[in-house]
């Protein structure tokens, strides 16, 4: 399956990735060749196969609802690119 520059533009919006017009063309070409390669999977009939979702036999794990220590607020905030009054500050949302 070949991707167009327009389709790449839509994908980039979904992936929250700003890309230039030149990148749209560049990625469309590269992604098309990768998708052409993965089309190889069509050679296999998987109509009767269960998808493998977990490689291990897993189940949900619960822990007791107890208070445990974690990193301090200051440590967590220290990596914030823009912090004000103990909040992460972002541009206006609504």
């Amino acid at each position: 399956m070949a991707l167009t520059a327009k389709e790449v533009e839509d994908l980039a919006l979904k992936a929250r990735l700003k890309i230039t017009d030149a990148e749209k063309e560049f990625f469309a070409e590269q992604l098309s060749s990768i998708l052409k390669y993965v089309d190889k999977l069509d050679e296999l009939d998987t109509s009767e196969v269960e998808p493998l979702i977990y490689i291990l036999p897993v189940s949900n794990r619960f822990r007791a609802d107890e208070i445990r220590s974690s990193a301090s607020r200051d440590e967590i905030l220290a990596n914030g690119p823009l912090v004000e009054d103990f909040h992460f500050k972002v541009p206006k949302i609504i």
Partner: peptide, 21 residues
């Protein structure tokens, strides 16, 4: 938002996400 590179020029949140990334 919480860590990593942020584009400080962006005017709205979607632009901030997209440009930072």
């Amino acid at each position: 938002v919480r860590y990593g590179l942020r584009d400080m020029e962006a005017e709205n949140v979607v632009e901030m996400f997209s440009q930072s990334r």
